[in-house]
Computed example of a mutant assay.
Amino acid sequence: MPVHLNHTIVPATDRDATAAFLVEILGLEPAPVYGPFRVVSLGNGVSLDVARADGDVPPQHYAFLVSEPEFDEIWGRIKERGLTFWADPYHQRPGQINTNDGGRGLYWSDPDGHNLEIITVPYGGW
């Protein structure tokens, strides 16, 4: 069997609020509780297991490969909420999207400062 990523833990100051934020913005099913986690399930069988963190939350980067229609839906929710978004991971190009590798991409932050990204074409292209 080839190796697949199954899940990763997302630290959060408020587990429930962060899971709800991810579910709402990404257009996913509600995140059930599993032990200390809120499990945000993605379409490829990978889950983001959101856990409450004590103290400071070190910001991480989470990138999501989405279809063109999904990109438009997610971007629409980001704009509806008045969230700042950027075309680049260093947040130097606010209010813009990128067209890297012939697709579209953008970055925004979750409530704890995790750098979230959506792209329609994987890095390096298809």
Score class of each variant (00 low, 15 high):
74 I>T: 13
89 P>W: 10
83 L>Y: 12
26 L>E: 14
60 Q>P: 00
86 W>H: 13
88 D>N: 05
55 G>S: 06
37 F>A: 09
7 H>Q: 14
59 P>N: 07
11 P>V: 01
87 A>Q: 05
107 Y>W: 11
68 E>A: 15
102 G>W: 05
44 N>K: 02
83 L>I: 08
108 W>Y: 13
33 V>E: 14
33 V>T: 12
41 S>C: 02
59 P>A: 06
34 Y>Q: 09
9 I>A: 02
13 T>C: 02
102 G>E: 05
48 L>G: 11
38 R>Q: 07
45 G>I: 02
102 G>Q: 10
21 F>T: 05
52 R>Q: 14
14 D>V: 02
47 S>V: 03
79 K>F: 00
76 G>Q: 09
83 L>C: 05
38 R>N: 12
30 P>F: 04
68 E>K: 12
95 G>M: 01
88 D>Y: 02
111 P>M: 02
32 P>L: 01
27 G>E: 11
43 G>T: 13
95 G>I: 01
55 G>N: 07
4 H>P: 00
28 L>R: 13
10 V>D: 09
8 T>L: 14
54 D>Y: 01
88 D>G: 06
25 I>H: 13
19 A>S: 03
71 F>N: 12
46 V>T: 15
43 G>F: 04
107 Y>V: 06
100 N>Q: 08
81 R>P: 10
12 A>F: 05
26 L>M: 15
60 Q>N: 11
54 D>T: 10
44 N>A: 07
35 G>K: 04
103 G>Y: 04
31 A>S: 14
87 A>W: 02
66 V>S: 13
15 R>T: 06
30 P>V: 06
52 R>A: 12
61 H>A: 13
35 G>W: 00
46 V>M: 12
10 V>Q: 12
81 R>M: 10
34 Y>R: 06
36 P>K: 00
108 W>P: 08
21 F>M: 05
92 Q>E: 15
44 N>Y: 05
108 W>V: 11
